[in-house]
Simulated scan of single mutants.
Amino acid sequence: MRDLVLAVHGSAVPEAGATVERLADAVRGLTGAPVAVGHLDHQTPSLPYVLADRPGAVVVPLLLGDGYHRTVDIPSVARHFDCAVTRGLSGEHGVALALYDRLRAAERAAGGPADAVVVAGAGSSRPGGNEGTLTAVRQLGTLLPVPVTAAYCSASEPAPAEAVARLHACGFRRVAVATHLLAPGRFTRALAEVPDVWAVGEPLADHQRTAGLVAGRYARAAAAPVVWARAAA
């Protein structure tokens, strides 16, 4: 059985590692495969270090956008170790359903539903890098009876605080933030400090739907011949 390696951005926030490890445990249970985590930044072990011990592994980018890491960084590392690289999680309807679940849980804790929602993604300056967040906005908008708009924690506009302020200026009183991020980090901490927010959803990595998406990526790639660092379905 081929190894499965989760390629994650990494964070200096201690809770991030615990969140990703819960995902890894869930994926092990779904696939029966050996699962390891390789980091692109901030944490160890690094992705090259992990892949060096697992040539031919299936690498699943734990990323919600198709920015530089997904399109350049990860494939360039993986090809040195004959690894298959799947698509990331950008645009998956399962992500929107997980986003919906997290939002509803936050709303219940706050005391009721929001009357407008901001989907806050990491942000990217690369062409197409924000498409995952924009797709999540569209998909979440079909599940909610309230306005849904996008915001970005870096590299793009509007910022979450600006998006929330715009909705308040339009007369919405209960503005919630749906966190289109995978693990705790500086972005989730910043979202928790945005003023005048009704509720903020938790990140998505340890949601059961995320584990199911990763397991599906692995199953399809593991059944195919090894292709050096090309995107698999």
Score class of each variant (00 low, 15 high):
Asn130Trp: 14
Leu30Asp: 02
Ser11His: 07
Ser125Glu: 09
Arg138Ile: 02
Gly141Gln: 09
Pro195Asp: 07
Ala16Met: 07
Ala163Gln: 08
Thr44Met: 08
Glu107Tyr: 11
Val60Pro: 06
Leu140Pro: 01
Gly65Phe: 12
Ala192Glu: 15
Gly112Ser: 07
Arg79Gln: 15
Thr133Ala: 07
Phe81Ala: 03
Arg70Ile: 04
Ala159Trp: 07
Leu213Phe: 07
Val60Trp: 12
Ala110Gly: 02
Leu30Gln: 10
Val8Leu: 03
Ala116Pro: 13
Thr31Arg: 08
Val137Ile: 07
Val37Ser: 00
His9Ile: 04
Ala96Lys: 10
Ala122Gly: 00
Ala151Cys: 05
Pro127Thr: 00
Gly88Ile: 11
Cys170Met: 11
Gly38Pro: 12
Glu157Gln: 13
Val37Trp: 14
Gly10Arg: 10
Ala150Phe: 13
Val164Ser: 04
Ala122Pro: 07
Glu193Gly: 00
Ala120Gly: 01
His69Tyr: 15
Gly129Trp: 12
Ala165Phe: 11
Pro48Trp: 13
Ala96Pro: 09
Gly56Trp: 14
Phe172Leu: 04
Pro147Ser: 00
Ala231Asn: 04
Ser11Gly: 01
Arg104Gly: 00
Gly141Phe: 13
Glu202Phe: 01
Gly17Cys: 05
Val194Gly: 02
His69Trp: 13
Arg79Lys: 14
Ser46Arg: 15
Val59Asp: 05
Tyr100Cys: 02
Val175Pro: 11
Ala106Met: 10
Ala122Asn: 04
Pro75Lys: 06
Val137Arg: 09
Leu140Gly: 02
Gly121Trp: 09
Ala57Lys: 12
Val37Ile: 15
Cys170Lys: 15
Trp228Ile: 00
Val214Gln: 04
Gly112Arg: 12
Leu47Lys: 01
Leu63His: 07
Pro75Asn: 02
